[in-house]
Computed example of a mutant assay.
Amino acid sequence: MWQDAIFLCGSVLTALALGPVLRDSRACIPLGTSLTSAGLRTAYVAAFLSLGMVWSAAGVALVSTLWVLVALYRRPSLVDAGLPVDVEDPVHSGFAGSD
Rank of each mutant, 00 (worst) to 15 (best):
G19F: 00
V54M: 10
S77G: 07
D80R: 15
T65Y: 04
A61C: 07
D4L: 03
V87G: 01
G94P: 02
L51C: 11
P76I: 07
V54S: 13
G82F: 01
L62V: 15
I29H: 02
T33I: 06
S93T: 07
D80S: 14
A27N: 03
A46W: 04
D4S: 08
V63D: 04
A46R: 08
M1F: 00
R75K: 13
V85Y: 09
S64D: 03
D86P: 05
D80I: 02
S77Q: 11
C9P: 01
S93E: 00
L13S: 14
C28K: 02
L49F: 03
S11C: 10
R26D: 05
C28W: 00
G19Q: 05
T36K: 14
D24A: 14
R41S: 03
S98R: 06
D80Q: 15
V60M: 05
L18M: 05
T36G: 03
A46G: 06
W2G: 15
T42F: 02
A5V: 12
L35K: 15
V91C: 00
A5E: 12
E88P: 04
W55N: 10
A81E: 14
Y44L: 03
L78Y: 09
R74Y: 03
M1I: 09
L16G: 05
S56L: 01
M53C: 11
S93W: 02
L72D: 11
V12Y: 08
H92E: 02
P20K: 14
S25W: 06
S25F: 02
M1W: 02
L78V: 15
L18F: 08
S25K: 11
R26S: 11
A96H: 11
D4V: 13
P84C: 01
G52I: 08
P90D: 05
F7V: 12
A46M: 01
P84E: 07
R74P: 03
V85N: 15
L13M: 12
P90F: 05
A27H: 06
M53T: 09
L83S: 09
L69G: 09
S64T: 06
A27K: 01
M53G: 07
V91R: 10
A17K: 13
A81P: 00
H92C: 06
F7T: 15
V91K: 00
E88K: 12
P90I: 10
R23S: 12
M1Y: 07
R74G: 00
L69F: 11
W2F: 05
R26L: 12
S64V: 08
V60Q: 06
L66W: 03
A61W: 02
Q3H: 04
G10A: 03
A17R: 14
V70N: 13
T42S: 09
F48L: 00
L62M: 10
A27V: 06
W67K: 09
D80K: 12
I6R: 11
L78M: 12
A17G: 12
A27F: 01
A46T: 10
R26H: 08
W2T: 14
G39K: 12
A15C: 10
F7K: 07
S56K: 05
A57R: 05
C9D: 14
